[in-house]
Nucleic acid binder design. Structure first.
Length: 554
DNA sequence: AATCGATGCTCCC
DNA sequence: TGGGAGCCCTCGAT
């Protein structure tokens, strides 16, 4: 093609573009030269973008104009170097080889070849074989029969769970909480500060409170003495105390009474837990301080106590389920700390559990309270097997992908509250896996005693990342939250029917079983749940609060 | 179908 | 020890 010549005063424009070959990752300098030499032959590809070029260049050079270089070479979007490209190839993500492993953070290999990538072989296991076991059954069964031998199937098969999708929240889900006694009731908090109350068997039944918080609801807890009262901690700096029956909400704590004075002073509340023995709500802020609320008076009690590095966020609090004097905290200062509630003051921690990066969560084990499970942004779960053992270093570290925290709710590994052996944890996974050509982010069930992946739950229709997960305290139910949707997972053959009255908001996918096949046994009496939301609605509608949102358009 | 950006933390100077 | 640039699989809005 003949070069187009006009505007002779323009400087030379050098088009650098990559050759089609992908293999060269050697010397950059050489490659640059090579490309420049080939320039004239390759210009046709870019002619529509740049019309002033090539032979004009010699004129421009003579006139002393510096050449303008436009690089069209393919470069890696991660390291900006040519010769390779990071990104998806089909449903598989190819790491930048110049960076440490994205999964375990060690140099020398990529995620694909990482020895910790426990599920690498998934894609090559023939499909029929994958369906021969019932691992999810296994996951739930072992709660009833902890003595079964620790030989575990490798993967949970999505066909064995049904998943109801509740699409209501307009922003990402940030926290979930099951009702302490009513089996079908779930609370969900979101980035906007809304709190939803769901009957997930009748998902169209809902009450949504939009006026409790002005931004992120970080944590919710039911009042142990009155399960119609819910406490919630928010990034708006308040603790909300909401009466679900009347819809009336007030704030026992407001750390920003003077409103927005700039980011340096705006306080946010993250970690929260309730110590029922002592009648306290404990919350912690983003400046390292612990605050206490007396449940009886619903008023602030005592002074704020510095429990993590001054100015750093306290990400979580957990009261020991057995020993009420023990408190566990974790924060952005890379520590989880154990405290004695009887004498808690700055620097008085019993143990400081060191992590390499931010600690997203730290939980005592739910039954004995004797183990600790933490989730850290260095892509590791850490387990301390006994509080009376060596606390200097964890009993185990399990490499698991969950470090992405910029635009997602932080991942938190949660105990299965029903597992008598206290060895089962659930956590969403960040890096995707190629499942029959789809890049999916499963929810992992991990045996924290062995580090083995017991199960991975996913649905081909759910392509989002699911950082928030909570296992039901009594039933075989997993609730998950992602960018906008709530998911209710359960074993297929035991699924409750899900009503689909409002298809705009409710999608049932994964072939939720319609047949009524009630599970008997360990659960509480579901008949109590009949009409719980309706009752809330009724009583709420009687309340005089005008801004209570009972429903909301998508 | 591209692009933008909210957003939190880390690292580097 | 503080400020600012920049960041690897987001995701919804335009």
């Amino acid at each position: 093609m003949a070069p187009i010549t006009r505007r002779m005063t323009f400087p030379k424009v050098v088009i650098e573009r990559d050759t089609d070959s992908e293999e060269s990752s050697s010397d950059e300098e050489e490659e640059d030269e090579a490309v420049e030499e080939e320039e004239e032959e390759e210009e046709e590809r870019v002619e529509s973008k740049v019309t002033e070029e090539t032979q004009v260049g010699s004129d421009a050079k003579r006139k002393g104009k510096a050449p303008i270089t436009i690089s069209l070479k393919k470069v890696c979007k991660v390291c900006k170097k040519p010769g390779h490209e990071a990104g998806f190839r089909g449903a598989t993500y190819i790491d930048c080889p110049m960076k440490p492993c994205f999964l375990c953070k060690m140099p020398g290999h990529t995620t694909m070849t990482c020895p910790h990538r426990v599920t690498t072989e998934f894609g090559v296991i023939p499909a029929p074989r994958r369906n021969t076991h019932k691992p999810l059954e296994y996951v739930f069964e072992r709660q009833l029969r902890p003595d079964i031998p620790p030989i575990k199937p490798k993967h949970v098969i999505p066909d064995q769970v049904s998943c109801a999708v509740i699409r209501y929240h307009s922003r990402r889900i940030t926290c979930l909480e099951f009702h302490p006694t009513k089996n079908n009731i779930l609370l969900s908090g979101d980035k906007r500060g809304q709190v939803g109350v769901w009957d997930f068997v009748k998902v169209h039944e809902k009450v949504v409170y939009g006026n409790i918080h002005s931004c992120i609801t970080n944590n919710m807890r039911f009042n142990p003495t009155n399960d119609c009262m819910v406490y919630s901690a928010s990034s708006d700096g308040t603790v909300g105390c909401t009466d679900l029956e009347t819809g009336i909400s007030f704030s026992p704590i407001n750390l920003n009474p003077d409103g927005w004075q700039g980011p340096g002073s705006w306080k946010m509340l993250y970690g929260m837990d309730i110590n029922s023995e002592k009648g306290l709500v404990l919350v912690a802020d983003n400046f390292g301080y612990l605050h206490l609320v007396d449940i009886r008076s619903n008023d602030k009690t005592g002074n704020a106590i510095l429990i993590h590095k001054k100015g750093s966020k306290v990400t979580g609090l957990h009261c020991n389920p057995v020993q009420p004097d023990l408190l566990l905290s974790c924060g952005n200062d890379h520590f989880a700390r154990i405290w004695d509630m009887r004498r808690i003051e700055a620097g008085s921690s019993l143990n400081d559990l060191e992590h390499r990066r931010v600690v997203n969560s730290a939980y005592f084990s739910p039954l004995s309270g004797n183990k600790i499970l933490t989730t850290s942004q260095d892509n590791r779960l850490r387990i301390w097997d006994s509080l009376v053992g060596n606390m200097d270093s964890p009993s185990r570290e399990i490499v698991h992908s969950h470090d992405f925290n910029r635009h997602l709710t932080p991942f938190k590994a949660e105990w299965d509250p029903k597992d008598p052996s206290e060895s089962l944890a659930v956590i969403g996974r960040y890096i995707s896996e190629n499942f029959n050509g789809a890049a999916l982010h499963p929810i992992d069930f991990i045996d924290i005693s062995s580090g083995q992946l017991v199960a991975e739950v996913m649905d081909p229709n759910i392509t989002t990342i699911t950082p928030v997960n909570k296992l039901h305290p009594r039933d075989d139910i997993l609730a998950s939250g992602s960018s906008r949707s709530l998911f209710i997972w359960r074993p297929k053959d035991r699924s409750e029917p899900i009503e689909e009255k409002d298809e705009r908001k409710v999608v049932v996918c994964g072939g939720a079983d319609k047949k009524r096949n009630r599970k008997s046994g360990d659960g509480g009496d579901d008949s109590d749940d009949e009409g719980f939301i309706s009752k809330l609605k009724k009583s709420n509608s009687k309340s005089k609060k005008p801004d209570l949102k009972l429903s909301r358009r998508k």
